[in-house]
């Protein structure tokens, strides 16, 4: 079976899940010509239908230059995902500076694997420089006592 047909099945399942979600909405006793479930139900049914439609007519097989046919570097995608997840987890704990520098460096480095040591050094330097620029702009014009900038990241949470 072609991949797109599996996708169609996933869509049908998602539609069913959406309809289940719509069932969880409380219909209040307030007067309302059309209640809060009406549109979600319609959308849920539509999603199921679109899945069935796609399953029935998956279209021509993907052309060799289409994204469906592209061979993907799943490791790299996984690393990128992990990197962002780590960033979000670290954001409040380690603070803005460490987390963002890590993200900038990791984001760059991930595109160059295996990186030459020169590229690695450059990425690292670039990330630090890039981030320092931002940090500088955040705190440059702030009186020492007011730690808030664009992103309202509290400096006490920042490990310098």
């Amino acid at each position: 079976m072609r991949a797109i047909r599996w996708v169609a099945l996933v869509i049908v399942l998602f539609g069913a899940f959406y309809l289940w979600g719509a069932l969880q909405i409380r219909e209040s006793t307030t007067y309302a010509a059309v209640g809060p479930r009406f549109m979600p139900n319609a959308i849920g049914i539509g999603i199921v239908l679109s899945g069935v439609w796609l399953f029935a007519f998956p279209g021509a097989p993907p052309a060799p230059d289409s994204p469906e046919a592209a061979s993907l570097d799943w490791l790299s995608i996984g690393l990128m995902l992990g990197l962002v997840a780590v960033y979000i987890a670290l954001f409040r704990v380690a603070g803005y500076v460490l987390a963002t520098t890590l993200l900038l460096w990791g984001g760059r480095a991930n595109f160059r694997r295996p990186p030459s040591s020169r590229a690695r050094r450059r990425d690292c330097g670039g990330a630090v420089g890039d981030n320092l620029l931002r940090l500088f702009a955040i705190i440059a014009h702030q009186p020492a006592a007011s730690p808030v900038g664009l992103l309202r990241v509290r400096l006490e949470g920042v490990v310098l």
Binding site: L133, R134, A137, I138, H141, Q142, L150
Partner: peptide
């Protein structure tokens, strides 16, 4: 780009008088 980043950040620094 740096200039833009800086100016956007300046925009954000609520107590930024410069």
């Amino acid at each position: 780009l740096s200039l833009l980043v800086a100016s956007a950040l300046l925009a954000g620094c609520t107590t930024m008088p410069a």
